[in-house]
Write a protein that binds this DNA or RNA. Structure first.
Lengths: 247, 247
DNA sequence: TAGGATCTCTACTTGTGAGTATGATCGAGC
DNA sequence: GCTCGATCATACTCACAAGTAGAGATCCTA
């Protein structure tokens, strides 16, 4: 069992003419915040390892070497735990947007800067929660909150893309689809990063930015992408492939 | 209780030279397969709507207007249901690889063809299961199986990228990271497609392929991407942004 | 029409995990 | 020493959902 250190026998007394009971109170509050954060962090790690539904609060408590009621002393529900993890992850990305607003460079470079931070956030310990938190697992209120945050980020990316098209730093494209593609690629990091940590989050983000920038088509040597005749003849296959499941 | 499907040797009791006990038997089996597929399809739809863990077999049964034991008559477990949904989705993508092998066009175009089918598969009713089936929810055996299938697809994409680099149809890049970026963007469709069906799967896939091909950098007019001086000065920020959770 | 195979139901068992009631323990202040 | 608030544990409740037992219904072949 785990115990409060310090012997009962008591060292001593109350040193110091209690200059401030507030001091102690602040100390306490700080301790509490630290512990609460530890709970949230432990939850994030367990969710990351086993998924939300396969993680019980007993698991989280065990990981912290305390018991379930102790966990409940710091958070009100499992749901809230997931929510907090989500917010912790997403906050980094919002911050990236705030930072970038001050840069006076073409929009594409601001976008790249955001994407780098985005990638790092997704590869962080809260990445899984941020990316995979399912709205269905949360109360309507929390779900709305999460959706709003996600939407804010999505529209932030779209805005940067539009600005880039305007200032000429980004190739003309559909901002909505492009934003989905970028965010999707980055979000997906959370799925495989756990198993393959050969690169840091920053390195992955950097590699992705390079891919996004350059595209697949070779440059320069005249082979200008879309030679229409070369297209693989879309192969109309009635929209639905003959699935293994009979219709 | 797994049922004697077709009992291979099990002759015995039904010698019956009669002209067509087989006929009926085949009819039956076909009916059974149809019903089983309906179960799997209904499961996919419910998983898609509410997530795996928030869907009970009673829900699925209700959706089919039968009862839970009836569902269990066609599948052995909930886990198997998820697995089957996954396989149904992924099979389409494998098929796309097989098809494409026959095309005699540059690798980039074969890759694009695969990506289009990939996108359509992810936007299909099995997309969610294919993409979000978590290994932790499945038995080790099934989990291994799924991993193998995913890996097969991943390496198929990487191979096409390598071939494209060799035949000059794809800009030199890191095949692994590029494959992750492409697959991630497409996989992510499953997350938002449910809510925003303004485009068909094929249209989305097409739009994504365009994004991947062209990249973000403007083309042609001299602004050749990576003017090194233009880079946003990586902003070393100690690798980890000050998170809302105290460390 | 009997008899067996197929299919579906009602009614259960069982395990698990979220959340809680209650009280013990500790440090600090009077 | 006593109290009070903060912290944590033991031991529960309770709901839900996976999976099962076993009987009834239905169809096919003889």
């Amino acid at each position: 069992m785990n115990h409060r250190r310090s012997s009962p026998g008591a060292p001593g007394k109350t040193p110091v003419a209690a200059a401030s009971p507030w001091k102690a109170s602040h100390e306490r509050q700080r301790d509490r915040a630290v512990k609460r954060d530890a709970v949230i962090r432990a939850a994030a790690r367990e969710f990351n390892r086993k998924g939300y539904h396969n993680t019980s609060l007993d698991d989280i408590a065990a990981r912290l070497e305390v018991t379930k009621p102790t966990v409940y002393y710091y958070v009100t529900s499992k749901e809230q735990l997931l929510f907090q993890c989500f917010v912790a992850g997403v906050e980094r990305i919002r911050e990236a947007f705030r930072d970038v607003r001050r840069l006076e460079v073409p929009a594409r470079e601001r976008l790249n800067a955001v994407l780098r931070h985005y990638g790092e956030a997704v590869a962080s310990e809260f990445g899984w929660c941020m990316v995979r938190a399912e709205e269905q697992d949360l109360s309507p209120a929390m779900s709305r909150h999460i959706k709003a945050l996600k939407s804010e980020i999505d529209h932030g990316i779209r805005r940067l893309i539009r600005e880039g098209i305007q200032d000429g730093s980004i190739h003309p494209c559909d901002p909505k689809m492009t934003a989905f593609a970028l965010a999707g690629a980055l979000n997906w990091i959370a799925h495989w990063y756990r198993e393959d940590q050969s690169l840091s989050g920053a390195q992955i983000a950097e590699a992705f930015v390079r891919v996004f920038e350059a595209g697949l088509s070779p440059r320069g040597n005249g082979a200008l992408a879309q030679a229409p005749a070369a297209r693989p003849a879309p192969r109309r296959r009635a929209r639905r492939a003959p699935a293994p499941l009979a219709r």
